[in-house]
């Protein structure tokens, strides 16, 4: 089942990438990132069947980071929205030098 899991993982990851690349809503982009993280988690779990529990430990770390990221990221989105009244990423180009 490991190979199948990796396949599903790859597909989910690709879908997440497509979402990040095509969507303009910051919240949905964010959710796509979460999807990608989950796809990676699936790979970890699949490999942990072959190599032991370390993979599961890493999944715990990934989840923690995802949670932290969600907290900070959503706070940023709130701050942006408060100022611009939008979460459209094409309208936000503060990084332009």
């Amino acid at each position: 089942m490991v190979a199948e899991s990796l396949f599903f993982s790859a597909v989910l990851f690709a879908v997440g990438v497509i979402g990040v690349l095509t969507r303009r809503n910051a919240i949905i982009i964010f959710m796509c990132v979460e999807l990608m993280l989950n796809a990676v988690n699936l790979s970890f779990i699949a490999f942990s069947r072959l190599y032991g529990f370390a993979g599961q430990v890493f999944v715990i770390f990934v989840m923690t980071v995802a949670a932290a990221e969600a907290a900070v990221g959503l706070a940023i989105i709130i701050a942006i929205f408060r100022h611009r009244q939008t979460v459209n990423m094409t309208a936000i180009n503060l990084l332009k030098g």
């Binding site: 990040v20 690349l21 303009r24 990423m89 094409t90 503060l94 990084l95 332009k96 030098g97």
Partner: peptide
């Protein structure tokens, strides 16, 4: 190179991918 710096995150994501 500076023309590439659009400031749009989406473009950067494309480049990364």
């Amino acid at each position: 190179g500076s023309a590439l710096q659009t400031g749009e995150v989406g473009a950067y994501a494309w480049a990364l991918v």
